[in-house]
């Protein structure tokens, strides 16, 4: 990954978040939640600042970021698509829905479209199993999605 230099203001924002948690190593996960909320993702440069502030190794922070699926080192699309692949959705055909999204957007899971509009990821159970299969776009929940309906859902965002 190309080295991106962080702007001074961004570094200060990270320092501020760390300070709010008392710069305690034990708060690393809470800090990373907040920082990701601010930046959308956790690139290496951001992790370096966090490690420095909490006085732990960069490897320790990198270890946490890569351990938990909630944290990501890659930026997501403007409209992140999350297809639930929990058991309830799986037995009601989530895989076919996922295939259709991949075919429509021509990207794989974990990737972002060239225009930066969409990214696809899988998640395990949002707990709306009554609506299976479920797809989330941003915060919006789509229930009982069929492969045929995928195009219509995408069109809501394509022209927006």
């Amino acid at each position: 990954m190309a080295k991106v230099k962080l702007a001074e203001s961004k570094i200060n924002k990270i320092k501020e978040i760390c300070a709010n948690f008392g710069n305690l190593p034990g708060e690393a996960i809470n800090v990373l939640h907040k920082v990701q909320g601010e930046f959308g993702y956790l690139p290496a440069e951001v992790q370096e600042v966090v490690a420095h502030e909490l006085n732990v190794s960069v490897a320790h922070i990198y270890g946490i970021v890569t351990f938990y699926s909630f944290f990501t080192m890659l930026p997501k699309g403007e409209h992140p698509i999350s297809v639930c692949t929990g058991t309830a959705c799986y037995v009601r055909g989530a895989e076919k829905v996922l295939d259709e999204f991949k075919r429509e957007l021509k990207i794989a899971v974990g990737e972002t479209t060239a225009d930066g509009k969409f990214s696809i990821s899988c998640l395990r159970c949002v707990g709306a199993c009554g609506l299976a299969p479920v797809v989330l776009i941003g915060e919006k929940v789509y229930g009982r999605v069929t492969p045929d309906g995928v195009k219509d859902i995408l069109n809501e965002y394509r022209n927006a």
Partner: peptide, 25 residues
């Protein structure tokens, strides 16, 4: 409150405790 970050193994109590301490679960 302590927030999980998406790791199934954290349901195991020793892993959960390590996660609450800010480490890998």
């Amino acid at each position: 409150l302590r927030y999980g970050a998406g790791a199934f193994v954290c349901g195991e109590e020793t892993a959960l405790i390590h996660s609450m301490e800010g480490m890998r679960g």
